[in-house]
Simulated assay, not measured.
Amino acid sequence: MIHIINLTYLVSPEEIKEHMVAHKAWVRTHSDLGRILLSGPNDNGGATIITADLDEETLNEFIEGDPWKVHNIASFETSSFTAKNVSPGIVTTPEATPGVFLVNVATTESPESSIDALSKAVEHVSSTATGFQGSRLLTSTDGDAIINLAAWSDEDAFNKIFEDQEFLDRYNTFGETTTGAKYRLYRTSRVISPSK
């Protein structure tokens, strides 16, 4: 389950500040372990943490280890849900999985045409392929390249799209709009979160 943890401050700002360095170190450690997807202060005080897919025991150990819990700086209220839709590029499991990321880089003289053609291929995949988990199409800031960042459940599911003639036709049309393209499949090796 994905967990949303709402932290409500129980002490004065001075006491919060006293334990802020330790809390931030705890956040960074768990972000780098892939356990924290998002975290930050709330506009009305307190903070929110959104976790990766953690079981109940791991969640409890996780919360109990926060210096703010140890020193009774904040209360922790959780709600949980099963993630059915995930934006490509977000990994919701802290452990290694068979999941892969496709990174397809194409150079182009017409990024709009390339994005339009690639969108048609990806839209077909999104409605027909088992294991497709979403795609994010990016255009370089100087406009000479595009990237398809797509998430797949596993390498075999990705490879099956090359048995689909409609996909191949659409992908070949995309290829005609580029000056070159190359893709690779990747798995997460390490997560490094901001240290500031």
Rank of each mutant, 00 (worst) to 15 (best):
M1P: 12
I2T: 09
I2N: 00
N6L: 09
N6H: 13
L7R: 03
T8S: 13
Y9T: 14
V11Q: 09
P13F: 04
E15F: 03
H19K: 15
W26Q: 01
R28F: 05
R28E: 15
D32S: 10
I36N: 03
L38E: 06
L38G: 09
G40R: 08
P41H: 05
N42G: 14
N44Q: 15
N44K: 15
G45F: 06
A47N: 07
A47K: 03
T48K: 11
T51G: 09
D53Y: 09
L54E: 05
D55C: 11
E56V: 08
E56N: 11
E57H: 05
E61N: 11
F62E: 07
G65R: 04
D66P: 14
P67Q: 09
W68P: 03
K69H: 08
I73V: 12
A74G: 13
S75D: 13
F76G: 04
T78I: 10
S80D: 10
A83W: 01
K84W: 06
N85C: 07
V86W: 00
P88K: 01
G89Y: 03
T92A: 02
T92P: 00
T93N: 13
A96E: 12
T97H: 02
F101T: 15
V103L: 15
N104R: 03
T107E: 06
T108I: 05
E109F: 04
S110A: 07
P111H: 07
E112K: 08
E112I: 09
S114K: 01
I115R: 06
A117H: 01
A117S: 13
L118C: 06
L118S: 09
S119Q: 09
K120S: 15
K120N: 14
A121E: 02
S126C: 07
S126G: 12
T128S: 10
A129P: 08
A129W: 02
A129E: 11
T130W: 02
G131Y: 01
G131K: 03
F132P: 00
F132E: 01
Q133P: 02
R136G: 05
L138N: 15
S140M: 07
T141S: 06
T141P: 04
G143I: 05
G143V: 04
N148Y: 02
L149Q: 07
A151G: 15
S153W: 01
S153P: 06
D154I: 07
D154L: 02
N159K: 12
K160F: 02
K160R: 15
I161R: 08
F162K: 07
D164I: 10
E166D: 14
L168K: 15
D169F: 02
Y171C: 04
F174T: 02
T177W: 00
T177M: 03
Y183M: 13
R190M: 13
R190P: 01
R190L: 08
I192H: 04
S193M: 10
K196D: 10
